[in-house]
């Protein structure tokens, strides 16, 4: 049965509404979601100060800290989300509704993106105010395009992970935990990723934030030596390819995992 486009669009709006309105209704969550990454970011700024590093690294840390909010959102509110929905009994409601599963994932992504952007912007502003970081953007349109493509690719990855984690129980939750710290390192959140070596950087480039941040560092700090992995144009092209691949893989994987889940009866199994 084919679902009408308007129904799917309504599903996207409905799922994102929960995140946009619900996520900001509880003010203490907004406070914590801004303050928690800021604490982490501040600690790394002080690490650089203690080590006597040049001040440009503080800018890299603030930029990385803002992007960190998106990575955490993808891990905990995209990849692991179906686990939560299953535990709370919402997943079966999604499955019996006459809508595409991709519409649910897209709604989650749109809502998450909005929610995170408020947090990321706050971290950037606080970074400027508290640590005196200076961004010298000359090419705003390129920066905007890089950000958008990075986010599409990143949330595409989140949708893929979400479908892969659909049948997992606590092991999916633990997998999200395991993916946190290694990506902080491999993604170059606090220093240019090229320092890890070209081979490691290329592998790490599977995570869209690696190339996205590398490009954004070049665009935000054009006068500094950001030790880039590739020119911005090349990174933008690769990110576009990644975005298409991840979204396609997410759609295929979601259908496959749902079918497997129905066959094995694991779609509604709680507390596993």
């Amino acid at each position: 049965m084919k679902t009408r486009l308007s129904t799917n669009l309504r599903a996207i709006v409905a799922r994102s509404y929960v995140r946009i309105v619900g996520g900001n209704r509880e003010l203490s969550w907004v406070f914590f979601e801004i303050v928690l990454p800021l604490l982490n970011v501040s600690a790394y700024v002080f690490v650089y100060r203690a080590l006597g590093a040049s001040p440009e690294y503080e800018g890299f840390v603030i930029l990385g800290g803002a992007m960190l909010a998106y990575w955490l959102n993808v891990l905990w509110a995209m990849a692991s989300q179906f686990y939560w929905e299953k535990e709370m009994g919402n997943l079966e409601l999604f499955l019996i509704a006459p809508i595409s599963r991709m519409a649910i994932l897209l709604g989650m992504a749109v809502g998450g993106l909005f929610m995170c952007s408020v947090r990321a912007a706050s971290i950037l502003v606080m970074g400027v105010v508290l640590f005196g970081v200076k961004f010298q953007v000359e090419h705003w349109w390129t920066l905007g395009a890089t950000f958008v493509v990075t986010m599409v690719a990143l949330y595409g990855l989140g949708m893929l992970l979400s479908s892969l984690f659909m049948l997992l129980g606590r092991n999916g939750w633990k997998l999200s935990m395991v993916l946190q710290e290694p990506v902080y390192l491999a993604g170059g959140f606090y220093f240019p990723v090229k320092y890890l070596g070209v081979a490691t950087s290329v592998v790490a480039a599977v995570i869209p934030l690696t190339l996205g941040m590398d490009a954004m560092r070049q665009l935000c700090f054009p006068t500094l030596d950001t030790n880039p992995l590739l020119p911005v144009g090349a990174e933008l092209a690769i990110l576009t390819v990644l975005a298409v691949v991840f979204l396609w893989c997410a759609a295929v994987s979601l259908a496959h995992m749902e079918r497997k889940g129905r066959e094995s009866g694991r779609l509604t199994m709680k507390w596993q």
Binding site: L51, G52, A53, Y184, L185, F191
Partner: peptide
């Protein structure tokens, strides 16, 4: 490892 890299490679 993150701290090791910051210390060894960056600084």
């Amino acid at each position: 490892l993150l701290l090791v890299f910051i210390y060894r490679i960056v600084v």
